[in-house]
Amino acid sequence: MNTTLKKSLIAATVLALLVGGGWYWNAARKLRTTDNAYVNAAIVQVASQVTGQVVAVHVKEGGFVHAGDDLFDVDPAPYQVALAAAQAKLAEARQGSQANVLGVDAARAALAQSQADLNNARAQAQRTHDLVLAKFVSKQAEDDAQSKLQVAQAALSEAQSRLGQAQAGASTVGGATPAVRAAVAAVDAARLDLQHTRIRATQDGWIANITLVPGTTVSPNQPLFALIQQGSFWVDANFKETELPGLHPGQTAEVRLDMLPGKTFPAVVESLGGGTGAAFSLLPAQNATGNWVKVTQRVPVRVRFVGSAATQPFKVGATATVSIKLAS
């Protein structure tokens, strides 16, 4: 009896192992799993667009901000002064423009006077010439008249040149002279710099890696801290190149995070990397030597969270395990 029972137990155990093994093998055929995976997200490097001293910081590490919220302020005083100076130069340019218009009117009047003087000199020269022919006046009188005519012609040419210069100085594009347009551009640039002394969030997200404090002097385009965009989290799963067959964008996946044991998050395959991780490293591997050893490479597969998981505040760089379903 004992022998029969032992045989039955052994048979049952073997059958259970066979069934379990078959189930595991069947499930493994429908899944690709790797624990070489890390959480990532869209990260904005926050920087100032102007130079100056920070006078206020409105955020702290891990704080959540909405798009448009104030992040920090740069001392606006120098830029307020610059704006006032630019506005004063604009007023001066507009006054100069008005003076140029008056100068054009004066030049036109001078030209008209010179034209009248020339007409008078021409008529006087003709009359003198007739009197010389009639021998009523001397030849010297005619020479004097011709000299006055030449002077009047030169005065007319000078008046025409002055009118041209005045018109060039008063020329406008869109109702403004070049000097006024340059002054307007300077005011706009100064006003923009003043607006840039208050740095605001460009999108919703969490503040990270911030050490900025009031009193710090900042320079343009110098990264100061990070803003992790809400809803942008994904996982870079590094699969072996031999595991890539059967993987393609759109497949469903499950993500388990080491920092949140027991929880599974739905995801979908977004893309397969265009090369191995080693190919895009700072110093790619060189295998042209004679002692080359073949090593299986890994290719990053981007897996994007979906559903309610898409808005979860995960931690960038956290380790994960990713399972991709090959078939339903």
Results as ranks from 00 to 15, higher is better:
148 K>E: 14
148 K>C: 06
148 K>R: 15
148 K>N: 15
149 L>F: 07
149 L>A: 07
149 L>C: 08
150 Q>I: 09
150 Q>R: 15
151 V>F: 11
152 A>I: 02
152 A>P: 03
153 Q>C: 07
153 Q>R: 10
153 Q>K: 10
154 A>H: 07
154 A>I: 13
154 A>D: 12
154 A>N: 12
154 A>P: 06
155 A>M: 09
155 A>K: 05
155 A>I: 08
155 A>N: 10
155 A>F: 04
156 L>D: 10
157 S>E: 13
157 S>R: 13
157 S>M: 11
157 S>T: 14
158 E>N: 14
158 E>R: 11
158 E>H: 10
158 E>C: 02
159 A>K: 02
160 Q>E: 14
161 S>F: 11
162 R>H: 13
162 R>T: 09
162 R>V: 04
162 R>Y: 03
163 L>H: 06
163 L>A: 07
163 L>E: 10
164 G>P: 02
164 G>C: 08
165 Q>C: 05
165 Q>K: 06
165 Q>N: 11
165 Q>M: 12
166 A>P: 05
166 A>K: 01
166 A>G: 07
167 Q>W: 04
167 Q>E: 14
167 Q>H: 06
167 Q>P: 02
167 Q>Y: 03
168 A>H: 03
168 A>T: 06
168 A>I: 02
168 A>Y: 06
169 G>W: 00
169 G>N: 00
169 G>C: 03
169 G>T: 03
170 A>M: 05
170 A>D: 01
170 A>N: 03
170 A>W: 00
171 S>M: 13
171 S>F: 09
171 S>T: 08
171 S>C: 07
171 S>H: 11
172 T>A: 13
172 T>W: 05
172 T>H: 06
172 T>P: 00
172 T>N: 05
172 T>V: 14
173 V>M: 08
173 V>L: 08
173 V>R: 09
174 G>L: 03
174 G>A: 00
174 G>P: 00
174 G>Q: 00
175 G>N: 07
175 G>C: 08
176 A>L: 07
176 A>M: 09
176 A>R: 05
176 A>H: 10
178 P>I: 00
178 P>M: 05
178 P>L: 02
178 P>T: 01
179 A>C: 07
179 A>S: 12
179 A>T: 04
179 A>M: 08
180 V>F: 00
180 V>C: 03
180 V>Y: 02
180 V>N: 02
180 V>I: 09
180 V>G: 01
181 R>S: 13
181 R>V: 08
181 R>G: 03
181 R>P: 04
182 A>L: 13
182 A>M: 13
182 A>V: 12
183 A>H: 02
183 A>I: 01
183 A>V: 03
184 V>T: 14
184 V>L: 14
184 V>R: 11
185 A>F: 02
185 A>G: 10
185 A>Y: 06
185 A>P: 01
186 A>P: 05
186 A>G: 10
186 A>Q: 09
187 V>I: 08
187 V>R: 13
188 D>L: 12
188 D>W: 08
189 A>N: 15
189 A>F: 10
190 A>P: 03
191 R>C: 05
192 L>W: 11
192 L>S: 14
192 L>M: 13
192 L>E: 14
193 D>W: 01
193 D>R: 12
193 D>L: 04
193 D>T: 09
193 D>K: 12
194 L>K: 02
195 Q>R: 15
195 Q>E: 15
195 Q>L: 15
196 H>S: 12
197 T>Y: 01
197 T>I: 05
198 R>C: 03
198 R>E: 07
198 R>W: 02
198 R>Q: 10
198 R>Y: 06
199 I>N: 00
199 I>S: 01
